[in-house]
Amino acid sequence: MPTQPTLEPKSTTKGSDAYRDPSWWYDLRGFFILMGSYQVMIWTHLNFFAKNLGQRHLEAAIGSGTFMGLTLLTQRIKGGKLPEEVVGIDYAERMLAGAKKLFRGSKRVKLVQADLSQIEYPDAYFDSVNIAHSFHAFPNPEKVLIELHRVMKPQAKLYVDVLVHPRGNVLKKNLANWINRYALRKGILARLCEVDETKAQFEACKFDVMEGYIVGNTYHLIAQKSHS
């Protein structure tokens, strides 16, 4: 199997410094990254994450809130049941400012500025967790997974999309690699992921991987909190 190209430079931006721009710019930039790097249509992601909205739902990390809002709208259009409580956690103050504006007046959504490796919620609290477009940006994914496992109820499911090395024809690969290098420089991407290594990470953190498949340059994974 040919080796995957490494992407340089590695991200040196830490914490919320990578998200100092206004939230509207983050949304616009995110849309082009989704189309150019992930190479997945937005409604494919929305349909995926809308399937995992339990009574108490955790969105990790919620960012500007735009994708979460669209996910709830997708569920409403499909006639599905909406969560009674949505907790959105993000460490970036500028991103949460956009989410607070979007969800102002909502009794359903609670927004918390925090590190996902230190969640101030009790054990076995959430019925569902989504990690949308952000797992590959976590500096310490194992710490996050351990903490998510703690706050999830038994049998609760975790849905995640993970950015993998570009696939497809030369033009698509070159476009994705150019965008990924930009994201690394900006600090909004920590690494590209390998499918087997990602699956092993979840299993090492006591998750049962129920399903996994690739769409575009994205590995969609469905995991469940393990009994053990």
Rank of each mutant, 00 (worst) to 15 (best):
Y159R: 10
A114F: 05
C205Y: 12
L70Y: 01
Y121H: 03
D21S: 15
S16C: 09
A176T: 07
K225H: 06
K186D: 12
A200D: 15
K173C: 08
D17I: 07
D21K: 14
L28W: 14
T44R: 15
D127W: 02
N177S: 08
P83W: 00
A50G: 10
P166D: 01
G63W: 04
Q55K: 02
G98A: 11
K10C: 02
A124L: 09
R185C: 06
E147F: 01
A92V: 14
D123A: 10
Y213F: 02
A18P: 05
M68N: 04
V170L: 08
W25C: 08
H165V: 00
P9S: 07
A200P: 14
G212F: 02
L116C: 08
F138R: 01
V160R: 03
L221S: 04
S134A: 15
Y159L: 04
L145H: 07
W25H: 11
L221I: 11
A114W: 07
C193G: 06
P9R: 10
M41C: 05
Y219E: 09
K81M: 10
E93K: 15
S64Y: 05
P2I: 07
E93C: 11
L116A: 04
I119Q: 04
C193W: 13
L158Q: 12
L145M: 10
D17T: 10
Y26W: 04
Y91N: 15
A50M: 08
H136F: 07
Q155F: 03
T66M: 15
P22V: 13
F202S: 11
V109N: 11
M35D: 09
D161A: 04
T74L: 07
T3L: 13
A223S: 03
F207K: 01
L70F: 01
N217Q: 11
Q75S: 13
G79T: 09
K100V: 06
A223D: 01
S226A: 15
V109G: 11
D27L: 13
K101I: 06
K173Q: 14
F31W: 14
M35G: 05
V40I: 07
D21T: 13
Y159W: 10
E59D: 06
L58M: 14
V109W: 12
L72D: 07
L102K: 15
A97Y: 12
A18R: 08
W24A: 06
N47M: 04
L82E: 01
I188Y: 07
E120C: 02
W24I: 06
H57P: 00
E85A: 04
Y19G: 05
K101Y: 08
Q118C: 03
T198F: 00
P9W: 13
A132W: 04
P122S: 12
E93F: 12
S16N: 13
T6K: 15
A200F: 12
Q4G: 09
D21E: 14
D123S: 10
K51F: 03
L192W: 12
Q201K: 14
L163S: 03
G54I: 01
K206M: 08
E147Y: 00
K14Y: 12
W43D: 14
A18E: 02
V129E: 02
R181S: 09
K143P: 00
A200E: 15
Y182S: 05
A60Q: 06
T44K: 15
V144L: 01
V162N: 01
